[in-house]
Design a protein around this nucleic acid. Structure first.
Length: 459
RNA sequence: GGCCGGAUGGCAGAGUGGUGAUGCAGCGGACUGCAAAUCCGCGUACGUCGGUUCAAUUCCGGCUCCGGCCUCCA
């Protein structure tokens, strides 16, 4: 089975053929570093991480570019409010972003370019757009002339007339056409700025992605991804800038992940249902957050609920239990099972892939011969690797507790109580044994008596 | 107002023109000092009204409801 991806550009699922069969290029819009990542930011990170893993398996070389936007008016505002220098805010937020998503088992991209390190490329592109009549300078701004591009609006499927009719913004007086958008804007002395032929200024929102994708992936490349909300205007404008400046097609496949809701409601700060990744990492292991995210197809809206997160954790409990119960055999090294690859190759059908993981878990649980166990374990782990889960030692998984929790029973306390209970059981004092088990259960520790003794886990 | 998605069993969530999703929860059984874990078995489903078809949850159309986007939000 070949890789098929839903392409927003054609609104169809298409067979994916890379431009160069030996080297796939993918660009995904990364974070604007002014605040900690929230779960909405985490979705594209996780979704495109799975795609990156899949592409890396299917093709000899993959270059995955995910930018860091470190020049933006939201950052400027944050600095103004807090008094902290911009560089301090962006450096810290970038570091926290890396910390957070590492816990979600997201692999680092091949290249993670920062916008401020590519101002020269942006200015070059703006210069070429002006030279070709696709942009004009006005009052210190440089604007992209939307009417200069005949097929503008192709990605988002809207016409010029619609956009003008539906425009909700006040039209700046320096715009020749209400749909024109900013490539470069003037900076006052207190704002970050770079010298340019149009005066000291800073880039508009869209130009950085055009400049950086072109720099690292070439003018035409395979895949461009991001959140569904970026289709318009961000990605539409990236296409306009890049194609008009380069005279060549831009990204061939456009992939967009759906948005997040929380407990059935749109996620928003005013509703107070806005979770950062860090807050959630105190509720459940990163792997549970990741699996939960992948339990809905990436194109669908995702409804984040407390119960859903609990279920995702229960799913991993089941899989890690199977691994723990087969700890005595080494996993056989093997390729991921065909049905798992087929599910992922069918437009990243992660829910179906997870269903296959359940089946593989059952196979492992049922295996009795060592060779069967080793094979089943290898298949499960290889499949899980495609999704970036089951990466830790099962014992570590079952011992997990929130980092900042008030200390409950330590591992040593628990082991001591288990020994005491084993003695009581040996003496057939089941009342005492059950009392100890209850005591542990009340502290969130569950026991399982097996042939090889008693094992435990934190609920 | 314009554009785009969606509606599947108690819950989550795939998929399909005719037969099993999967998991959780529930019920019954095996196992267990009792549990837990595991295994086996069981049940309930495709919003609504029409159309196409030998056959529709699946294709087409109307309706209802829900969600998203419409200039700097992933």
């Amino acid at each position: 089975m070949a890789l098929a991806l839903y392409n927003t550009l054609t609104r169809r699922k298409e067979a994916f053929q890379p431009l160069n069969p030996d080297h796939v290029g993918m660009y995904v819009c990364g974070p604007t570093v002014y605040d900690r990542a929230h779960i909405g930011n985490a979705r594209p990170v996780i979704v495109f991480d799975v795609l990156y893993r899949l592409l890396s398996r299917l093709y000899p070389k993959v270059t995955y570019v995910r930018n860091i936007t470190d020049v933006d008016d939201k950052i400027n505002q944050r600095s103004k409010d807090s008094g902290e220098p911009i560089e301090v805010i962006t450096a810290r937020t970038t570091r926290l972003f890396h910390d957070d998503i590492a816990e979600l088992n997201a692999l680092p991209p091949t290249i993670e370019p920062r916008a401020t390190a590519h101002i020269a490329q942006m200015l070059d592109m703006i210069g070429r757009l002006i030279a070709k009549g696709h942009a004009y300078a006005a009052e210190g701004h440089v604007l992209f002339s939307v009417p200069s591009m005949s097929d503008y609006g192709k990605l988002s499927g809207r016409s010029m007339d619609e956009m003008i009719a539906g425009a909700r913004v006040e039209v700046a007086p320096y715009k020749k056409n209400p749909a024109d958008f900013v490539l470069w804007k003037p900076s006052t002395p207190d704002l970050p700025g770079w010298d340019s032929p149009w005066g000291r200024g800073r880039p508009g929102w869209h130009i950085e992605c055009s400049a950086m994708s072109g720099q690292y992936l070439g003018t035409t490349f395979d895949i461009h991804g991001g959140g569904l909300d970026l289709v318009f205007p961000h990605h539409e404008n990236e296409i306009a800038q890049s194609q008009c400046a380069n005279g060549a097609p831009f990204a061939r496949f456009w992939l967009h992940n759906g948005h997040l809701m929380v407990e059935g409601e749109k996620m928003s700060k005013s509703l107070g249902n806005f979770f950062t990744v860090r807050e959630l990492l105190d509720q459940a292991p990163g792997e549970a957050l990741r699996l939960y995210m992948l339990s809905t197809h990436y194109h669908q809206p995702f409804d984040w609920t407390a119960d859903g997160l609990k279920q995702a954790r229960a799913v991993l409990d089941r899989m890690y239990t199977a691994l723990r119960n087969s700890a005595e055999v080494a996993a056989e090294i093997c390729d991921p099972p065909a049905e798992v690859l087929a599910a992922l190759e069918d437009d990243l059908n992660t829910p179906l892939a997870i269903a296959h993981l359940h089946e593989l878990t059952t196979v492992l649980n049922k295996a009795t011969e060592a060779a069967d166990k080793a094979r089943a374990k290898g298949a499960l782990l290889a499949a899980a690797g495609m999704l970036g889960i089951l990466t830790q030692d099962p014992e570590a998984w079952f011992r997990w507790q929130p980092a900042n929790t008030a200390a409950g029973l330590s591992d040593a306390d628990i082991e001591a109580l288990i020994v005491a209970r084993a003695d009581a059981r040996k003496a057939r004092n089941f009342a005492e044994a059950d009392r100890i088990r209850k005591e542990l259960a009340d502290s969130g520790v569950l026991l399982e008596d097996g042939a090889q003794g008693t094992i435990w886990k934190r609920a």
